[in-house]
Design a protein around this nucleic acid. Sequence first.
DNA 1: CTAGGGATTCGAGCGCGCTCGAAGTCAAGG
DNA 2: CCTTGACTTCGAGCGCGCTCGAATCCCTAG
Lengths: 147, 147
Amino acid sequence: MLDPTGQVPTGLTIEEASSRTGVSAHTLRYYERIGLMDPVPRGPGGHRRYTDDDLGRVVFLTLLRQTGMSIRDMQRFVELTRQGDHTIADRVDVLVDHRARLRAHVELLTRHLAALETKIGVYRTILGVEHPTPDDEPALAGVKEQP
Amino acid sequence: MLDPTGQVPTGLTIEEASSRTGVSAHTLRYYERIGLMDPVPRGPGGHRRYTDDDLGRVVFLTLLRQTGMSIRDMQRFVELTRQGDHTIADRVDVLVDHRARLRAHVELLTRHLAALETKIGVYRTILGVEHPTPDDEPALAGVKEQP
DNA sequence: CTAGGGATTCGAGCGCGCTCGAAGTCAAGG
DNA sequence: CCTTGACTTCGAGCGCGCTCGAATCCCTAG
């Protein structure tokens, strides 16, 4: 493990970074290719070694993606970051806009969720309401029905 | 507008249905093609005339889509519907599962929203907090952060 | 030295959910 | 009559976000 110079490679391999972030190695390379990540430092043999900062970046990118920001918009945001501190106000604008969209989206989903509850209620009523709705908390417990 | 027989075509044209549901005419035809909608009744000239029931169906399909159900799963659900009342319990199962995923998704988004607030806060701090953040009350009541 | 394993780059391919365009039909209006 | 325009069917195409596979390279173990 130790090399003769005493240098221990620092940082995580791409596989380790993948398992810690939940992002596939393929996707990690892809993000780097398209400029969402700055070139990740390389260890011996040109292998990527992810630093904590790199991981943090990945996590943030994942947050943006999962909240519906497009790859293209993420690229624009990252470009702002690269341009230095004088773009911080712009970055805040982007994030605030994104937050607004996200809030609206969450509200929409919440309304849809309520409508879905109603629909389920209607169906259950049709089935005959023996059960005093033992269903409003288990989620994964597994939904039993009986005739 | 009135034809000699006194027959007034009933229901909405595809364009009207589109503007009322927010779903494009292209997509309405597509949904019918792939079996998400039963064949919509036709008026003179073979043109579609959407009934209120049809619109209701479109709205429900839209809800499922917007909450992340795949077209494929929607097709399976619709197929159950077509098979008659004895599939109601199965339909409930599908909807309950979907509700669980939706709840989890909303929770994830809510956590991401909180993280986003934090990030914005950090950036604002860097900018120097002249502005007493005139932004932390609108939209949603949920999710407050405090330093 | 050889073999193995896991990384590298790169472009191509894929699944999803539309989205579009071509070609045709029909009814009303001038 | 002919035009206009909104509809019809159908298959093809598109944009997105990955996802994969081939070829190559490097390091380590035996």
